[in-house]
Amino acid sequence: MGLTGLLLVGFLIEHLLGNFKLLEDSTGEAFNEYVLWLKSFGPLLQLAELGLAALFLCHIALALRLTLENLAARKQKYVVRGTHGEKTPGSVTMFITGALITGYLVKHLLDFRFDERYFEDPAAFVKLTLSQPQHGLAYLMAAFVVGLHLSHGFRSAFQSLGLSHPALNAYLQKLGIAIAVLFATGFAVFPLYFLFAWNGPAR
């Protein structure tokens, strides 16, 4: 769980950096070049995509088993449910945010990866899609959801892998929150920009 989670974080970093190519110029040339560059890897890119898909499937399968076992471990629930103050909004919603990410992932792939029109002019197509409220708002929400998942997930993965040291844990905790905020705002930039600040396709 921890290993697949952290590897996914690695993918997210690359993905976010790639996205920023969208904002590099107004013509979208930078982003399109980046897409072409990725495509130039040919079979290697396909291998990477397969690996990534496998990574997601492993993470999801482990998450499902973990969550089902945990739900089953206390059949008689507490009448009064309290807390000792350590649970966080992120930690108690891991499965829900995970499931939302899965749904969003399917949408995301259908929107771009499996849409023929995307590859004609990737940058223009992304901009057009994100500027439509029904898509833009969905992506905005997804950015928040990924952030919430990571607000717990990042710190949690280190503990699950046994990487813990009294002198470092407080920093890890803060780094986790920082990464969550970074990804949430980083990914939110694009729908926000194309929804509200963009003047439509360049003529």
Binding site: E69, H84, S164
Partner: peptide
């Protein structure tokens, strides 16, 4: 028993203040 997902409620509830550091060590 269920699986640990690192909520850390256990450590706060423990009457002897056992740290989750021990869970990392167990891992």
């Amino acid at each position: 028993f269920g699986n640990c997902t690192n909520h850390f409620e256990c450590m706060a509830a423990c009457p002897k203040g056992i740290s989750v550091e021990n869970i990392a060590r167990l891992n």
